[in-house]
Design a protein around this nucleic acid. Structure first.
Length: 500
RNA sequence: GCCCCCAUCGUCUAGCGGCCCAGGACGUGGCCCUCUCAAGGCCAAAACAGGGAUUCGAAUUCCCUUGGGGGCACCA
């Protein structure tokens, strides 16, 4: 039973170096689901130790994205928490302290090699087609000598003293045991010469101090996973459970999305950036449902999930280790499903800004009537203005004669049909669908024409569009006065065309 | 080049030795419904990368090949 699961403390630890994309959104989602499912905590930690790559505004977009998706954190830089601070830049001294501890215990050493020397070394190794790695020059330095040089103010970094022999076995929740030969791993730098810790050290220290139970992250960390385990072990700390998620591939399935391709996507109305999805008219519910299923499944047929469903049903056991190609067609499908799942007032509220963005003056009472008749016709919220913008226009542009002419009829004949409809409609007290539809249907029968021919003329006349929401319901919303007015002007257009 | 990971329809996936001549979904094609467009319903085409091995029996276990992905920074 799920009740027996221990409360998990799970962190989402992005670096503020770019935009929030679908891949990080999925990681955050799984973090959140595990925390909520087990009654644990979802923690947001900002990994900003690389000041050079810092992008202003990235952290804000990230937080907005998480909130939009409904992934609210229990501890984080803005809300605080018992294990703060939650920005790594503010934890600099903590890492230094632990790095020193590693040196004292013989698991790390100071290195005085210059970047220039290292670069030269790399080039030589590459020339010899060798695996590029640190050659261990400073590893042999006597601790006293190293300490003296540090005291003298010499620039240095701190490196992990990777065992030269043997192998390291780590455990990934999705892939089981992974064993690597230690000689294939490097003496990775733990602390830079500016005194700031690198990811490898910082996250291990933080995860331990913050009592993280599960580390869910991208598979790009798999190669350095053994290093991280070794650091935990060097401190004598218990390792959290590690879950490495595979990357998202581009729609073709061939390789991951490049910056260029990501930018090109927007032309087709898609994006891998969470913030763009909102403006493109996608629902956070749909994003969550869609990305949850890229790498996780519940069973062999259930696909529609709300956040509550996911919290109830999510399990690490049903994660899939293979990479998944992003499929926007399926995303559209999910968005449609979730739009149709919305209550009308909710849908109306979400629709309003999309009408307004196109310059329509939205009347709330009318919007409430429009929402239900376009609900099942929307792929995205952004589709609404095109389908139903005319409801919020006092005057529509008169359709061209050819658009008002029924298939198989001349403009003149179409005008005659329109005149007959006008007479019938004028005699109706109001334009309710219940009243109008039977009357018009009997006219269709009487004329011996098809419903498509007759209603096509009316549709174009009243909505100004060849494609529209259901005609009679639309007429009801538009009201008798406007319907009559527009039908009259359509008749005029047709008559003029008939004369010519 | 070296190291690591992955491998079922075009795509997302179910499958954890017999229930599978492989199930669901998106997309595609057809039909039905129908005032247009949708939504909905029905039907169809569509996959276990290849080769060995284990086993009475393999999509499911093991090995190799191939393919794909990731990593090899004083980035995360």
């Amino acid at each position: 039973m799920s009740h027996s699961l221990k409360p998990a403390r799970v962190r989402f630890a992005p670096s503020p170096t770019g935009r929030m994309h679908l891949g990080s959104a999925r990681t955050a989602l799984y973090d959140y689901l595990l925390a909520r499912k087990t009654g644990g905590q979802f923690i947001l930690r900002i990994e900003d130790t690389d000041r050079r790559r810092f992008v202003p505004g990235a952290e804000e977009e990230l937080m907005q994205g998480l909130r939009w998706l409904g992934l609210n954190w229990d501890e984080g830089p803005d809300v605080g928490g018992p294990y703060g601070p939650y920005r790594q830049l503010e934890r600099k001294e903590i890492y230094q302290e632990y790095a020193l501890q590693l040196i004292e215990s013989g698991h790390a050493y100071t290195c005085f090699c210059t970047p220039e020397r290292l670069e030269k070394l790399r080039q030589e190794q590459q020339k010899r087609k060798e695996n590029s790695h640190y050659d261990g020059t400073c590893r042999a330095l006597a601790p006293q000598e190293a300490a003296a040089r540090v005291a003298a103010g010499e620039r240095h970094v701190i490196r992990f003293k990777m065992p030269r022999q043997g192998s390291t076995t780590v455990h990934d929740r999705l892939r089981g045991d992974i064993t690597v030969e230690n000689r294939n791993m490097d003496d990775y730098i733990l602390v830079k010469s500016d005194g700031l810790a690198l990811y490898h050290l910082a996250h291990v220290v933080d995860d331990h101090l913050m009592k993280i139970t599960h580390v869910i992250r991208g598979s790009e960390w798999l190669p350095t996973f053994p290093l991280h385990a070794l650091i935990h072990r060097a401190f004598g700390w218990e390792e959290p459970e590690f879950v490495h998620l595979s990357v998202f591939l581009k729609p073709s399935g061939k390789g991951k999305m490049s910056k260029r391709e990501s930018a090109d996507l927007i032309k087709d109305g898609y994006s891998i950036y969470v913030k763009d999805l909102e403006t493109l008219g996608y629902l956070p519910e749909a994003v969550v449902n869609w990305i949850a299923l890229m790498g996780w499944s519940y069973d062999d047929h259930t696909e529609f999930f709300t956040m509550d469903d996911l919290i109830e049903k999510f399990s690490l056991d049903r994660l899939n280790p293979s990479p998944a190609a992003i499929n926007f067609a399926k995303f559209d499908h999910f968005n449609g499903l979730h739009i149709r799942n919305l209550e009308i007032p909710d849908l109306a509220n979400r629709l309003r800004p999309f009408f307004e963005a196109r310059g329509y003056l939205v009347d709330d009472a009318r919007l409430l009537k429009v929402a239900p008749i376009i609900q099942e016709r929307l792929v995205t919220l952004e589709d609404a203005p095109e389908i139903a913008g005319f409801f919020f226009q006092d005057v529509i542009q008169s359709p061209a004669a050819e658009d008002l002419t029924a298939k198989g009829l001349t403009p003149k004949e179409s005008a005659e049909v329109a005149r007959q409809m006008l007479v019938l409609l004028e005699s109706q007290p109001e334009m309710t669908a219940n009243l109008v539809e039977p009357v018009l249907r009997s006219l269709v029968e009487q004329l011996g024409l098809s419903p498509g021919q007759v209603f096509g003329i009316l549709r174009a006349a009243v909505t100004g569009q060849k494609i529209s929401p259901p005609l009679f319901e639309s007429m009801e919303i538009i009201g008798k006065q406007k319907v009559i007015e527009r039908l009259r002007s359509a008749i005029q257009v047709l008559e003029r065309a008939g004369d010519g």
